[in-house]
Design a protein around this nucleic acid. Structure first.
Lengths: 236, 236
DNA sequence: TCGTCGGGCGAACACCGTTCGTTGCTCGAA
DNA sequence: TTCGAGCAACGAACGGTGTTCGCCCGACGA
């Protein structure tokens, strides 16, 4: 069966002012979906669909979904600005970087679910690690302490954002707004804590308000403060 | 079409010395699969299959998979022994509890992927929280500090085990033994770090050995030590 | 003895990541 | 200019996932 040539009076199929498929385009679209609807909405099929093609086409530019997510993470972490070490400020700059990571990651919802899986090895992640390490060394921490502290601080920031992203995903999935979600989930939880027998759970019962209070930001700050105070004790 | 009565000379279908389906049985089987093959192998279909039934049958005893995983987590966390507060030991008991959690969770592979998603509210998890809170209060921490420190320490232990479980899952998925995995994954990574231009990444280049050394246990201990030292500064 | 209630469960739904094999375009060599 | 090779694009399918629908049937209360 010969293909019939296109009649000259029909313009060629113009469904394609679209850029040709490329890795950047895929990453960009994936990040867009992630920002708009969360990680669960990011599927190969969905990205392909938004690009006007089928899922198989993506695999020419990306090895698999895991690699794609790593590329998206690299893009996001690249937004974190890394200051040069100012030795006289000691570990204060660490607090600054941690907050920047926190904010950038929060801005891109649940991308934080990705990097815990594997040691980041993209150039942007390396630049960030280099900056943090340099600050700690300049502040007078022994090399082995600085190296492990880098690992622990990285884990702390990622895990906090990760936890927050799971909370946000639940909120999104529930379809309710924040206050309705709070009323329906946290209120019963608080009531449950209040209903606990005081003799079995004296510490919890006596401190429910302290346990329930505090936003995500406040808790992050508190944990960061503990970490920095503890790290301070290792300075020579 | 009438059902033909069973001929009396055939014993009734004896594929069923099995206990009737129950929530405990489902949880038990799920935990068994999790221990043997990891979280990824735990699916509703797989549990049902091992119980000799179909996936739909499970939903009479368990609301959904999320609830099932929470029940499994409850079972595991129940293995952690909680000591009574000994005020003269200060925060030392916290170190002990953290290690117990660490060991119990590690013993059950990647169950740690579950609890980060939601505030634990089962009786066993509550008992653990009560114990940790009581110790911190007895050690002289202000209530608000103790409450948030409970949250942060819990997050630290869970996130460390979680990270470890992802590593273990990768190892398992690769099908290789630990040393082969190390050679094929970590060695190239080390080589990559070594190949970095020293002028762009001076801190990393000069400290590769410090960065690569240290087992999971050593890193966990180091982070725990930082946390406890930092928390110590809040004692009145 | 009859009726109803509820666990058990086969089948199906709507997804998922990934692979296979074909199509058809582009570009360099002859 | 023509041919051929290589490769991006992609339709279709594979083997999985969690969950729901609706029927069957046995036990138990009236």
């Amino acid at each position: 069966m010969e293909a019939v040539p296109l009649p000259p009076w029909r313009t060629p199929p113009k469904h394609a002012p679209r850029r040709p498929l490329s890795q950047e385009l895929i990453v960009e679209k994936g990040l867009g979906i992630l920002d708009a609807e969360g990680l669960d909405a990011v599927s190969m099929r969905r990205i392909a669909q938004e690009l006007g093609t089928g899922p198989a086409s993506l695999y020419a530019h990306v090895a698999n979904k895991e690699e794609l997510l790593e590329l998206i993470f690299e893009q996001v972490i690249g937004e974190v600005e890394v200051p040069a070490p100012e030795p006289e400020r000691g570990l204060d700059q660490l607090r600054e970087i941690a907050w920047r990571m926190y904010r950038v990651l929060h801005a891109h919802a649940d991308i934080a679910r990705v990097p815990m899986a594997n040691i980041p090895r993209g150039p942007n992640a390396l630049r960030l690690a280099e900056g943090m390490l340099a600050i700690m060394l300049a502040a007078g921490l022994p090399p082995q302490v600085a190296a492990w502290a880098l690992d622990r601080l990285y884990l702390y920031v990622m895990s906090d954002v990760y936890e927050g992203s799971l909370y946000a995903a639940k909120l999104r999935a529930s379809g309710k707004d924040q206050s309705a979600f709070f009323e329906e989930i946290l209120r019963p939880l608080q009531a449950y804590y209040l209903s606990l027998p005081g003799e079995s759970f004296p510490a919890i019962s006596a401190n429910i308000d302290s346990l329930m209070t505090g936003s995500g930001d406040e808790r992050f700050e508190f944990g960061l403060e503990i970490f920095l105070r503890g790290l301070e004790t290792y300075r020579s």
